[in-house]
């Protein structure tokens, strides 16, 4: 009973120590130099030192800020543009060709441009995140509004509903549904955007630590940054999945990969 209920936690929890022991043994037995691959114990102590040094909190905060601010603004812009495009044919005809062109180009490739324009601070990375997030949200919003059945609008017409009632009672709920099922992907992309932006040019952030580590041949710093990014990614994923489950209670949701 107990095993079945917590199988998802027990199995990885048993696997992790085994993995760490094999890793430690491998490093010791084959005398792998620690500038190529440190053992887990050594890595663990370097992580502790990173935190007691105090600096790392600043880097985490910078990256988080870029992700969260960028995602929030990106969602707002994507929703507004997507709604307008779905509702006004003219806007769609004007904007859609450009959307397709920009959409097919890797948006990350704009990172150097943004850094030239906006400097090494948070702004350039937040702008990159906004760009990366707003496009898929915009396209999904167009699809979400288009997917509303004609008879739903007919129902509102029969009820003599006002335009803003159609907006608040029908269009907003359908947009929220789309948004919540798209937010996990948006956050993943936001994180990639922020980190790559930081790697290309920044004064702080976990991506900056990655570049710094590689420039100074500090493999422990690289590994620590990767671990921290994974933890942040996992945290964001679990939070958005929790919110999705609570808010989309009325839908049969797919089984999640984790959690």
């Amino acid at each position: 009973m107990f095993y079945h209920k917590y199988r998802k936690i027990i199995l990885p929890a048993a696997f992790l120590p085994a993995f760490l022991i094999v890793w430690e043994l491998y490093v010791r037995v084959f005398h792998v130099p620690n500038y190529l691959l440190p053992g887990p114990a050594e890595l663990f102590w370097s992580m502790i030192r990173l935190f007691t040094g105090g600096e790392v909190m600043k880097h985490i905060a910078v990256t988080m800020e870029e992700i969260l601010v960028g995602t929030a603004i990106g969602i707002a812009i994507g929703l507004a543009l997507g709604y307008l495009m779905a509702k006004l044919k003219l806007i769609e005809r004007l904007v859609m060709p450009f959307v397709i062109i920009v959409q097919t180009a890797p948006k990350i490739s704009l990172a150097p441009l943004f850094i030239l324009w906006m400097g090494l601070g948070i702004e350039s990375k937040a702008a990159l995140v906004i760009l990366v997030v707003s496009f898929p949200i915009m396209i999904n919003e167009v699809a979400a509004i288009r997917s509303i059945e004609g008879n739903v609008y007919n129902l509102m017409k029969i009820l003599k509903a006002r335009r803003w009632q159609v907006f608040t009672k029908i269009e907003i709920p359908y947009s929220i549904e789309m948004l919540l099922s798209g937010i996990k992907l948006a956050l993943t992309q936001a994180m990639t955007g922020a980190v790559i932006g930081e790697m290309i040019g920044a004064k702080a952030g976990l991506g900056y630590l990655l570049t710094l580590g590689s420039e100074t041949y500090d493999i422990k710093m690289i590994l620590n940054a990767v671990i921290l990014l994974s933890v942040i990614g996992l945290g964001l994923y679990l939070i958005s999945e929790f919110v999705e489950r609570k808010a989309l209670y009325w839908k049969v949701l797919d089984k999640s990969v984790i959690g």
Partner: peptide, 13 residues
Amino acid sequence: MGFVFQDSVLLPW
């Protein structure tokens, strides 16, 4: 007027 459509058009949430 009331209108009943062939598919019930309920709001799923």
